[in-house]
Amino acid sequence: MFGRVRAWGSRHGRLVDVLVMVPLVLLCLVSTENYDGTGHLPGTIGLSLLGYLALSAVLIAPLVWRRSRPVQVFAAIALIAFAQWLAPLEPVPADIVVLVAMYGVAAYRPLRWALAAGAIAELGACLMMVRWGRPSLLAFASGSVFVVATWIGGIYANTRRRYLESLEERAERAEHERDQQARIATAAERARIARELHDVVAHNVSVMIVQADGAGYTIDSDPEQARRAVQTISSTGRQALAEMRRLVAVLRQDDAHEEDYAPQPGVADLDELMAHIRQSGLPVHFTVSGTHRDLPEGEQLVVYRIVQEALTNVLKHGGPDARARVEMNYGPGDIMLRVTDDGRGAAAPRSIDGHGLIGMRERVAMYDGSVQASPCPGGGFQVTVRLPVSRAA
């Protein structure tokens, strides 16, 4: 609640300053009830009712700029009060604005300005005691209490405001760094996906070369011309594979070792993945429903990587007694993949950057699919993926 009030005050600073003036104006107006009808207020020297109202207005008016120009406002009010002391005109209720202006300097300006304003306000209190009070140690101490208390209040407000601004700045910086890390993770994940898909293409080209070489030795009709055509296909395929390998080499220039251009894992490798996960200590139940269909290797890779990432997250965050369930359903035009566990769910200390989830969304988005990942109401975590396969079919 206090945070909302502070935020509202920051957005409507001028209105807050005007509201601060309202009690002072009311105090000055209430004091006019003592007007004795002779043209002067009781207890004042040469000050008529009109002069009293004018002096009060001149003292209060600068408070409109109390926060935007605190030093100038305090200087103006202090000079007016000093001129009032020189006149001499006895103190009026509006003289309390000296403390209000001093508070503004202490609350919104560095310590050196606060010390100067406090010293001037203390000097003004002493001068007032000398002229209109009964000078004594107790009187000076009583007057100083109000000045020092107001000054300390301003210093505390200044310190707290700077602390809150520092917290907000650090929160904004942390949010910016988190967004930047997420963008970096997204770029890295896209690069990794591109490498894997290029591996798939490279493997297909390798198969094409093998088939073309075999065809060159099996075609019997006009074998010479067929052999030349097939050899041309083989040569073109090898050139394409060489270009693909150059491209993949550029993408993999940061890798520490050479990698084989072997086929990437697919749906057929899920059973082996489940066995590996079970050996790691996580019980997994895997079910497949619907009419099985052949999928392109790219989509098979997406399915495999999502299951792998989801089960890896269960191993990392689910807790020692977690169990997982993987359900794969072949629908008429899509594949529904659901990975659930009964681990710690929302209570798990998951990483704030969520690189794994970013990778899932990037993979599925390539095939116009969707991903939903959230804690389960009764505990645990669930990842649901819908992957359209109508184009592939």
Rank of each mutant, 00 (worst) to 15 (best):
A226R: 06
Q180C: 03
Q264C: 08
L115E: 02
S10P: 00
Q211A: 12
I184T: 13
V20Q: 08
A75M: 13
A174T: 03
A187P: 01
I352S: 13
R190A: 07
P265W: 09
R338I: 10
G318Y: 06
P265V: 09
A392L: 10
S68T: 15
D222Q: 07
A57W: 11
R112A: 11
W113H: 15
R278I: 07
A346Q: 13
L282G: 05
L387I: 08
A61P: 00
R338D: 08
H285M: 06
T287N: 09
Q84D: 09
V71I: 13
L127S: 11
N329K: 02
P283G: 08
G3A: 14
R161D: 13
A373Q: 05
I209R: 12
G319D: 12
G39W: 03
L137W: 14
Q239E: 15
A157E: 09
P223Y: 13
L387F: 03
A76V: 14
Y103L: 15
A174F: 08
E177V: 05
P88C: 05
T186F: 04
V105W: 08
Y108A: 08
L63E: 02
V25H: 01
S206E: 11
Q308G: 11
F82T: 14
L26V: 15
V5I: 15
L167F: 08
M366Q: 13
L138W: 11
A188N: 10
G46P: 00
A365C: 05
A346P: 04
T236W: 05
E258L: 11
C126Q: 14
A171I: 02
E33P: 00
F146E: 06
V200I: 15
S48Q: 04
Q264P: 04
G345P: 06
G216S: 14
R112G: 02
G359Y: 02
R6E: 10
A194V: 03
V64H: 02
G369S: 02
F140L: 14
R325W: 04
M102N: 04
R325T: 10
Q225V: 12
S234W: 02
Q225L: 14
